[in-house]
């Protein structure tokens, strides 16, 4: 081979390597942005559910004991979300506690049938926001799973394409919708 041919082969190899790196970096960047928006959405839905629960607790629809407990759990859930004024899903345990508290306070399906229209609307709001929490958490954990798998691939690890972006973690909480809640409506 002449010098020119060797040069051409080396240029080809460099081009292929550059292309692999470029595609990998682009894919990883896309996944990181996806995780970021899924996380924003999850935080948004968790805040919306806590606010809906707080509204329900303050409405006088529930019995006094349930009202106090739900209000406390909702306030704790909201407080745990606020970090420098930006909502962040930081504690699954506190969100799970809110789930359990609402489930207990709502009682049986028959109890919901007894509510007046205002009560039913408030409960419907809790149901709608809760359903969105289950969706947002599914989508967030799915984005995290894909990103973690991508970050274990060789080009990403060898070239530290992830930079300083921390490894994302799944968000675990008890978000099983209570059977008593009306079917999710928009």
């Amino acid at each position: 081979m002449t010098g020119a041919e060797i040069g051409l082969v080396i240029a080809g190899i460099v081009a292929v390597i550059w292309w692999v790196i470029w595609v990998s970096a682009q894919r990883l960047d896309r996944l990181h942005r996806r995780v970021a928006s899924a996380r924003t959405s999850l935080a948004h839905q968790l805040v919306a559910r806590a606010v809906a629960a707080l509204d329900l607790a303050h409405s006088g629809v529930l019995d006094p004991a349930s009202s106090i407990v739900v209000a406390e759990a909702a306030r704790a859930a909201l407080a745990s979300m606020m970090d420098d004024g930006v909502p962040l899903p930081s504690s699954g345990a506190i969100q799970s506690e809110l789930s359990g508290t609402i489930r207990l306070a709502l009682g049986e399906p028959a109890d919901i049938d007894l509510l007046d229209p205002v009560g039913r609307e408030l409960v419907g709001e809790v149901a709608a926001t809760w359903y969105r929490v289950t969706l947002a958490r599914r989508f967030y954990n799915e984005a995290v799973g894909k990103t973690r798998r991508r970050r274990r691939s060789w080009p990403v690890r060898a070239l530290r394409l992830a930079g300083r972006t921390p490894m994302p973690l799944t968000f675990e909480m008890d978000d099983a919708l209570p059977e008593t809640l009306p079917h999710p409506q928009g």
Partner: peptide, 25 residues
Amino acid sequence: RYDWSSVVSQILAVYETVAVGHVEE
């Protein structure tokens, strides 16, 4: 539970969940 009234609400909930995060981004 398979009626469009219920199904379209669930699909819209997915749209909103996905779109909310994106607005911030």
